[in-house]
Amino acid sequence: MTQVLQQIALVSGKDLRIEARSRQTLGLVVVLGVLIVVVLGLGLGPQQVASGMAATAVLWVAYLFCGVLCFEKTMAVERHDGALAGLMLAPIDRGVIYAGKLLSNLVLMVMLALVVTPVAIVLFGFDLSAAPLGFAAIMAGGFVGFAAIGTLFAAAVSSTRLQGGLLAIVIFPVSLPLVIVSTQMMMRLFGEGEPLGGTGLAVLIAFDAVYLVVSWLVFELILEP
């Protein structure tokens, strides 16, 4: 078990080292995320913005589009110079490659959220102080499921010529349940002042578990050098 965790950390650490050096993915997605929030904020107008509740939906739009870019970029690293074949030749389980890429994507998503979320809070006047931990828990639940399927589909799509466009088309519908559940939970938490119930989180965690298990199992079948 320790060896598997070390291998996962190795794959993910390599991705993050490459990202830290090239800054290709994070630089791009942060700018895109901020732009989405600002443009939608301006588009919705002062009335919607003043309510503050539009912020959660706008944030999800930003996370969805930026997430797709993250997943695509982290997989593209493996496609350059046949590096993925090098990984597949190694005596490691395919699940290790999946988990490593998933971890890299989650780290990038969290870093994105750390920049984009404050922008939305300021722009929309969203009062996060009512339940900061609840907000973090809901977003974390959403991110895990979203990154789970995103990592899987990015690997599948990376072997095709369609790439970016196709990736968004396949990920968005599948991630819809996560978006609906987490947005509803946010509405209840911040709009109606209800405490974060166990049922809502349980549903979110159940979605995450299904996405994770299915993606882990399917990843081996779709991975091509």
């Binding site: 390599k14 490459i18 050096r21 090239s22 690293v77 110079d81 046949g82 030749l89």
Partner: peptide, 15 residues
């Protein structure tokens, strides 16, 4: 027990 040299180098350019 197998080593492979492919058409592509299987290396990471940014490392």
């Amino acid at each position: 027990r197998i080593g492979v040299i492919g058409h592509q180098p299987m290396l990471y350019r940014d490392l």
